[in-house]
Design a protein around this nucleic acid. Sequence first.
DNA 1: AAATATTGCTCAAACGTTTGCACAAATAAA
DNA 2: TTTATTTGTGCAAACGTTTGAGCAATATTT
Lengths: 345, 345
Amino acid sequence: MNNHKKITIKDIATALEISPSAVSRALHNHPRISESTKKLVHETAKEMGYQPNQLATALRKGKSHLVGVIVPRTNSHFFSSIIEKIEEALDAKGYNIIITQSNESFEKECRNIDALLQIQVDGIIASMANETVDFSHFEKIKESGIPLILFDRGENDIGVDYVGIDDYESSHMIVQHLIEQGCKRIAHIAGFSHTRIYKNRIRGYIDALKKFNLPNDEELLVEGSLTIDDGREKMKALLELKDRPDAIYVASDYAALGALQVLQERGIKVPDDIALVGFGDEPFTSLVTPTITSVHQYSKKIGALTAQQFLKRVDDKNWIPHLHKLILKPELVVRASSKKDLGIN
Amino acid sequence: MNNHKKITIKDIATALEISPSAVSRALHNHPRISESTKKLVHETAKEMGYQPNQLATALRKGKSHLVGVIVPRTNSHFFSSIIEKIEEALDAKGYNIIITQSNESFEKECRNIDALLQIQVDGIIASMANETVDFSHFEKIKESGIPLILFDRGENDIGVDYVGIDDYESSHMIVQHLIEQGCKRIAHIAGFSHTRIYKNRIRGYIDALKKFNLPNDEELLVEGSLTIDDGREKMKALLELKDRPDAIYVASDYAALGALQVLQERGIKVPDDIALVGFGDEPFTSLVTPTITSVHQYSKKIGALTAQQFLKRVDDKNWIPHLHKLILKPELVVRASSKKDLGIN
DNA sequence: AAATATTGCTCAAACGTTTGCACAAATAAA
DNA sequence: TTTATTTGTGCAAACGTTTGAGCAATATTT
């Protein structure tokens, strides 16, 4: 019969007529406590329904076993599967994660960081908002002394650990693939170039064009927020051009979906008239018609590696601290939207 | 220039040569502190980069301002948009949420609850795992005295608040719609009947058949886990029947997608040969070909209402405590997969 | 001018743990 | 038997904050 009040170590102590310190040590298997009292303490603890108060422990030990995770949104397969893996890995080590969303807002991101620091999280794992161009709030994390790991949307210049894929290389793979399909005028619906990953994709796109001796036509490169609606807008604009592209490389699957919708509404054949490639390998890319070629980002691997890196920073006594940047090779998943049947079959 | 050490109220106190209590009161705008010292304290606090330690506050006040959220998975549009709304509402009131996933596992759900209770969360908002048939761990939450709100996957019999949609009614709407399309043999790929929502959908399905004088053929009702693969399996099995159904009502969009794949692989026309209806209105239902008719569950509304109910329990002094169950009317979103062109146009 | 009220602050205890130190009793070594 | 070691436990301080009670100084009322 449990009372409604929370029962503490002190309650066990008075019940057993020993000191709270003895109880605490007994519960932690301290060698200097006799086996008999240990057994006694464990039994009555269970009996009375004792639940340790982690808040008190955290305060005393200076360790909360909470980890803050900041993502632009959970409502995306990419981020939610990363989170899933992070949670899995940290849970195994006794950490709980607090997930916060920035909703791509710089100001919300700042508030999230403040909140997490006040809760005394033991570390922060983050992927930055689209809006973010000033990094002083991340510096604040560093100053507080807790580890900070960035993934995917990470800025390399503030000297923190990072896990992500090789965006520059991804663009190369995409452009090369499109050229192999016979495309000559490849447009790029890009993200804002102030975000590192999008900047790298743009650089890769431009360099690949150069490498394959295609002209770099500035009107074929447009930056945007990469939502579905943005994809529609940008696609419409590209179709206005006197000299239309014959392939579109979109830096996000969502925007690619918007672009696809517009193309279909106008009766433009994909991939025959215009080939389309997205980015991120969201599940829907293989569900729509035609299926959309995309870049697989190894979200699960990114999640696992990020968590692993965090644990090294925070727990591993053998780990010699050094900046750790991990860039994974991406994989191009070719689907119908870019696979021109070149008359070979 | 900040030091690397965390600075506390005491540090401010010694810097200003006043007592810590004065500092604390100044920071909280206590009326018995002079305006001059208040200003002084606020200034030096900002200057020294003071971050309140919520752990200490929580311990002293007996309130952590943390709320635990337990979902089967975040990796679903339905749950992630509910979470988004919950976070939005609670964030506005100074609460942070800790999201944990049960992965549909009973055992994980139990561990999650224990972890949350130890962190001293101020309340728990949960949607139960598929596996869960024993509710003693939820009783434990009730015993601990903090509020518990269930949504969607909720058991009504343990006497806690609940927010969800009317599953029974949903089935009625679906069956009626299919009958209006001229279907005569309506199958139901259902969830496990020990889960309340699926049981209700099954009941609704059976009662609706009765109401419209359709025979209730037992071989047309199959229970499963409702994953994509499960949908494929069950669809294949239904196609084996000597007397095939002409409509399938699937209790989940994911399983509906699996079913659709099988139908398309076999060249069966949807909706002409077999009409298909899913459940949940996941975004992909409007992306696939044909688009899938589904039931919209008002996930954003569920999230908002759940949070609101939690806040009433925990903060609202005027709220007269009573059991509060909220059942929303669902909306049938008719799409191509069930819309038979009855030769009218 | 005396009595009362208000203002502005300090003290110390409390929240539930953990932990260095001390200390008695039991055991082992000399 | 004396001395040294080990074993089992208690005391009290600490983590950073909040808060009731207390108290001197000032301001207000009679």
